[in-house]
Design a protein around this nucleic acid. Structure first.
Length: 277
DNA sequence: CACGTCACCTGCGTGC
DNA sequence: TGCACGCAGGTGACGT
């Protein structure tokens, strides 16, 4: 589900809630949600860890602990929620982490507990607990909103591949963070057809694509991400899609009806007038 | 190396 | 109303 802007939004929401708290317990409700280490070791190792920082890398949420990092990938339907006081597990909760403020080490006394709840209907999401970030994040491409991601880098990297633009942009080892929605939106903004081969892109087009990727991700973040289907977390970018999910509706640029095609098994939305093959 | 296919899961909308 | 089917914000393991 969530792409870079949604994960960034979640990180920003969770950061003030989590930093400075200590993990007293983790309840793994669906063992396969824990990718690494074993469910048993996960519970042992996470106990007592303090949360030092909450950030994002690509679509991964990164929770820096005293001696480990907790990495969370929400995949298609995952969500992270903060709950307080007495809670009852909801239907699709896969992991519940119990937290207390660091000054209060007594479990029973002190202020009420806080819970970090990982809810994931489709069970595709995964969490990792590791002391070696590279092991999980090592193959990721650059951050699209970082200084590493320049028009020159993009042009150069496109020339060195021979792939269709959309599948390449979805490839997290090429660039980290774009998913189906933001890729369609960025290609439309850049006026590039998703099937165009990467090494046929001109310098000018690569500059447009670079600009479009950053603009669309920044807009997504500014609007607190998109909330579609049954996962709603307050974002409203879904009301501003230019092409995604707008089959048959007019292109906001030229008015032509948006077409839906399939590219690499993914539903793909284009304006046939703005985005020429 | 690039691409297609399937698998992993649950739930929702559609059409019969 | 029931049911089959297709589809969904992602990724990884295969085979060609």
């Amino acid at each position: 589900m969530p792409e870079l802007p949604e994960v960034e939004t979640i990180a920003r929401i969770l950061r003030p809630e989590l930093i400075g708290r200590r993990i007293v317990e983790a309840d793994v409700c669906w063992a396969r949600s824990v990718a690494m280490p074993s469910s048993k070791k996960f519970k042992e190792q996470i106990k007592g860890q303090e949360i030092l920082e909450v950030s994002r890398r690509g679509k991964f949420l990164k929770v820096q602990l005293t001696t480990y990092d907790l990495l969370i990938h929400l995949r298609m339907s995952g969500d992270l929620l903060i709950k307080q006081g007495k809670i009852k597990p909801e239907k699709h909760d896969r992991l519940i982490v119990t937290l207390i403020p660091t000054p209060f080490l007594g479990e029973e006394k002190g202020p009420g507990k806080t819970y970090l709840v990982f809810n994931d209907t489709r069970k595709f999401g995964r969490v990792w607990l590791t002391d070696d970030l590279e092991k999980v994040l090592g193959k990721l491409g650059p951050e699209p909103l970082s200084a590493d991601f320049t028009p020159h880098w993009l042009y150069d990297s496109l020339q060195h591949r021979h792939r269709q633009l959309k599948p390449l942009l979805l490839d997290q080892t090429f660039l980290a963070g774009l998913g189906n929605i933001y890729t369609d939106e960025a290609l439309h903004m850049a006026k590039l057809h998703p099937l165009v081969l990467s090494d046929s892109v001109t310098r000018k087009q690569a500059e447009r694509l670079h600009q479009a990727i950053q603009a669309i991700l920044r807009e997504g973040i500014r609007r607190n991400g998109a909330s579609i289907d049954w996962v709603y977390r307050g974002g409203d970018f879904q009301n501003h899609f230019r092409v995604y999910g707008r089959e048959g509706q007019p292109c906001p640029v030229c008015g032509t009806h948006i077409k839906k095609i399939v590219v690499g098994q993914r539903g793909t939305h284009i304006c046939p007038h703005c985005q020429k093959g």
